[in-house]
Design a protein around this nucleic acid. Structure first.
Length: 486
RNA sequence: CGGGGCGUGGCUCAGCUUGGUAGAGCGCUUCGUUCGGGACGAAGAGGUCGCACGUUCAAAUCGUGUCGCCCCGACCA
């Protein structure tokens, strides 16, 4: 078999640039993150994918706790009457709610919704728990699954059942609730950039993009390689809307009975889809070290009659684990080259090769996934005694490098314009984030969407006054990033 | 929900137009030789062609329906 043919035969995923969608789906499946299940629109999160989720969970959870939140768990099923209390909320979610109508052989008197989100059930409980301003704030998060009856699905980005966390808080004042909303937005922004190595724009959503029932919605928006934006986390200031719908009242210090101010916020496994698309390359995933289930894989090179390398790998791995690294020894009966390719595909940041030469010299070869293009070269030989320190530095460098690469992409695909035609063209061509002065009128946004398929992603304050909306010429009220989105 | 495509061993696909109950490569199993970028040899195992109904002496091949997946658009995290 010729070398070219051999290479072709082993190609598992299509080039990323040619067809991002095909690349993405193949990458998720071939890297064994997910499998399709017998249930339409629902995927199985396989161990490697769950490992990614666990790292996200672990990091975010620590951040929530550090900001005073506690975890709790609320029921999966929500009585219809509860779900229906907040008018906008109902309207927004009704089309995608799955219902339980029967229990055993008995038809239910009242349908039960499988939660599409938990404001209804949590709000109901908060109403029971809160009496006094002394009971506030309530700062609770839950890690859960939710179901939304979607028509079109793709791994992580949109599935009927998905994993997420949803924070729900109640406060005594509007200012406190807004502060909480923004605190979480910043927490999400920092997590996305620092841990997932995905640069984002954070800001306020337009009214058309607002969460059903919210007073104000904020989000973080990442830019995918095809120029589409991915909403990667949302934080809602619900004002008193839900408090009024669910009767969340308290007696304040001034003896007046008042409605509480609530917030809700969430990040789902969609974030994983984002980091996969942002960082992956033609050879598969490139997982940022802080998110990687396996930070380094040790590959022993054994020869017949010489399996010393395997022993050295085992003892080295044990030492690295003691030092706090997540490592795995790949002792499977395969060729080393086969293993390299597979771990490349699965995106393990660093590969540690140990062969007979290394055994003699008490060294190991380190290869970094992000830069190594599959040919020898981007590798370094390290003394085993220095391995831990070198690996630590290397992982930090890879984390920073992946972020820098993604940031470079975002920067070069963010366009500021004051020209209407150019604005529309950039939007229609899916060029990236298009930054304009905007009037903030829903009609204007709808027209832009009809013409270009782009919508506002996030808004921010205008730095100067007297500007006209680039799209329609009316007085500008904000700056807005426009983009097509997932 | 509209437009398009697809469904054949674990994977990628051929066969379907011109019906006669399945093929290739890769993978898998065993043994041996190998092992620093997807090894080689030998011997094996594995599918009834998404599902249902229909046409026919006969269906992977034709028809209808249905389920699922992919892509594009509308909707949404």
């Amino acid at each position: 078999m010729s070398e070219a043919l051999a290479r072709d035969v082993v190609k598992e995923i299509p080039p990323k640039a040619a067809d991002l969608s095909a690349w993405y789906t193949a990458a998720c499946l071939k890297a064994e993150l997910v499998s399709y299940s017998p249930v339409r629109g629902c995927v199985v999160l396989r161990p490697y994918g769950f490992g990614l989720w666990e790292n996200l969970q672990k990091d975010l959870d620590a951040r929530f706790k550090a900001t005073g939140h506690e975890n709790a768990y609320f029921p999966l099923l929500i009585p219809e009457s509860l779900l229906m209390r907040e008018a906008e909320h109902v309207e927004g979610f009704a089309p995608e709610v799955a219902w339980v109508t029967q229990g055993g052989s008995e038809t239910l008197n009242e349908r039960l919704a499988i939660r599409p989100t938990s404001e209804a059930i949590i709000g109901t409980m908060y109403a029971q728990w809160i009496e006094s301003y002394r009971d506030l704030p309530i700062l609770i998060n839950q890690w859960a699954n939710v179901v939304r009856w979607e028509k079109a699905t793709r791994p992580f980005l949109r599935t009927m059942e998905f994993l997420w966390q949803e924070g729900h808080t109640a406060h005594a004042s509007a200012a406190e609730a807004r502060e909480e909303t923004l605190r979480i937005l910043e927490l999400y922004r920092d997590f996305a950039q620092d841990v997932a190595a995905v640069p984002v724009f954070a800001g306020r959503k337009s009214s058309s993009e607002r969460f059903p029932g919210a007073v104000e919605t904020f989000s973080i928006e990442a830019l995918m390689p095809d120029g589409k934006a991915l909403q990667s986390g949302t934080s809602h200031d619900l004002g008193q809307n839900f408090a009024k719908a669910y009767d969340i009242k308290f007696t304040d210090a001034d003896r007046a009975v008042k409605y509480a101010y609530t917030t809700s916020w969430g990040v789902s496994w969609r974030m994983l889809g984002g980091l996969i698309m942002v960082h992956g390359d033609d050879r598969g995933l490139r997982i940022p070290p802080k998110m990687a289930p396996i930070e380094a894989v040790l590959v022993p090179i054994v020869r017949s009659g010489d399996d010393r390398a395997l022993d050295v790998c085992e003892t080295t791995a044990a030492r690295l684990r003691e030092a706090g690294f997540r490592v795995r020894v790949d002792d499977r009966d395969q060729q080393p080259g086969w293993k390299y390719s597979e771990w490349d595909l699965r995106g393990v940041p660093v590969r540690i090769e140990i062969g007979p030469r290394d055994v003699e010299a008490e060294t190991a070869v380190l290869a970094r996934r992000d830069r190594d293009k599959g040919e020898p070269g981007q590798r370094q030989s390290v003394a085993l005694t220095d391995l831990s320190a070198t690996l630590r530095t290397l992982l930090e460098d890879i984390q920073a490098s992946l972020y820098a690469e993604a940031k470079e992409f975002l920067d070069t695909h963010t366009f500021v314009t004051t020209d209407r035609d150019e604005f529309l063209e950039l939007c229609a061509n899916r060029a990236g984030m298009v930054d304009i002065a905007w009037c903030e009128r829903a009609e204007c946004e709808a027209q832009i969407k009809a013409a270009t398929a782009a919508t506002t992603r996030v808004l921010r304050d205008l730095e100067e006054s007297g500007l006209a909306c680039v799209a329609c010429g009316e007085p500008a009220r904000v700056r807005a990033y426009f983009a097509q989105s997932y």
